[in-house]
């Protein structure tokens, strides 16, 4: 049996300011995941923002997994967050400083 693999688009062309998060994504079948946070547009000091992977016991309550990185500072920049051993749910939380506005596309690459 080939390893299951799936690419999910979990946010696309939204306008993020301040605190934002992707919708919960259930992927208990996967053992590894990569979030690609690509800036379709970056306005203001987006590069001072942080992106954090979050995990959840139930898809409702969220805790930081510990993996984080800076948000792309410019349009077409891509941030990468790799995780494994994450349980059943994943989402990406982004915190942006005042005056920053991000139009993201978030790709979640999953593999069994």
């Amino acid at each position: 049996m080939l390893r299951e693999s799936h690419t999910a688009i979990v946010a696309r062309n939204e306008r993020w300011e301040g605190e934002a998060a992707t919708e919960p994504f259930e992927a208990g079948w996967a053992s590894e995941a990569i979030f690609f946070l690509r800036a379709l547009a970056a306005e203001g000091p987006t590069g001072e923002g942080r992106a954090h992977v979050q995990i959840s016991p139930d898809g409702i309550r969220w805790v930081d997994e510990g993996t984080s990185t800076t948000v792309p500072a410019r349009t077409e920049g891509i941030a990468v967050l790799r995780v494994a051993h994450f349980g059943s749910w994943l989402r990406l939380r982004v915190s942006l400083p005042a005056g920053a506005r991000l139009t993201p596309i978030v790709t979640l690459s999953l593999k069994a």
């Binding site: 994504f25 259930e26 992927a27 208990g28």
Partner: peptide
């Protein structure tokens, strides 16, 4: 541009392989 997409389609989410798990 993605901005030309109808708003009600833009908010569709990605389907998931779920275990139907609850708190």
């Amino acid at each position: 541009t993605l901005d030309s997409m109808t708003a009600s389609y833009a908010t569709h989410t990605h389907p998931q392989l779920a275990t139907v798990s609850h708190w």
